[in-house]
Design a protein around this nucleic acid. Sequence first.
DNA 1: AAGATGGTCAACCGCAATTTT
DNA 2: TAAAATTGCGGTTGACCATCT
Length: 304
Amino acid sequence: MRKPDAPPSSSTGGGGNKLRKGLWSPEEDEKLMNYMLRNGQGCWSDVARNAGLQRCGKSCRLRWINYLRPDLKRGAFSLQEEELIIHLHSILGNRWSQIAARLPGRTDNEIKNFWNSTIKKRLKNSNNSGDAETRGGAASLAHVNEHQLQGMYVDSSSSSSSSSMPGGLFMANQYDLLPLPEVGCGMIRVEDSSYFHEPPTVAQAGMENGFYGDGQGVMMVEGGLMGGGCELFVPPLESSQEETAMNDGGAGSMVSSADLSNSGDVNKIQSGMLWEDEDIRVGEWELGDLMKDVSFPFLDFQVE
DNA sequence: AAGATGGTCAACCGCAATTTT
DNA sequence: TAAAATTGCGGTTGACCATCT
């Protein structure tokens, strides 16, 4: 890790209230970490203030999310993760946070960096080499587990998934990437029929000419049809992990600070056993688990 | 050995959306 | 209802490091 910027001449005074920028020092990390473990996530500007950090809330948030969160998975991306990223990117485009939401322990920043530095290059190379075989390179990667992934798209677990699609089949070609209005409570609002009249926001979905994936045609989109007027139920967009995160209003589904301090669960948290949901096992997850509760056709593309 | 080059990663910036006042 | 504050996101930058010449 890089050396942090020299600490301010005087951490509290001296420079006045000037906010610090640049790399975080271990001391700052410690302050933030301690504060978060003690108090949980609140208003980030309060966090910055109360933790005694000369940082803006935004910076604290970023540091926590990208670096300090105990559930973060470190180290290189596995092949499995790589394939998943490529596949998700073929569907979602540069929606890094959406992709990250499906890769436990990985941050959007991490994935974005990985994509830009590694995968993108690989895609480019395989593009340049031209022949069908190498061309397959990245694109085929996205297909490597296509059938496997598709099987996982079947939303077998969500109670709210009494989908109008028979058997909850993954119908990517037809339904994927459609701009949809808000997906709330696992249900699409369909009372506004105009939703179905909106052309797909191609640019938004990162597609051109019906393709996405650096021109490799990874995912073909055929002017999606959305069975006008039929009532659609979809499972929650995010994995249960994120769901709980939202519900808890804290850092992930972090045990509340009170619970923490009372139960002495700090160790548990620090060792990465952060999630209360027993189904979520950071560090030893399976693709199948990952894709549970995930229904790609109804990602939150929103009409703008 | 020293400089050039490229890759990786952490962090910032600007914008948009959402929430609060 | 409007303004302000907060949050979240994606793009970009720049420092550090490894490798190459």
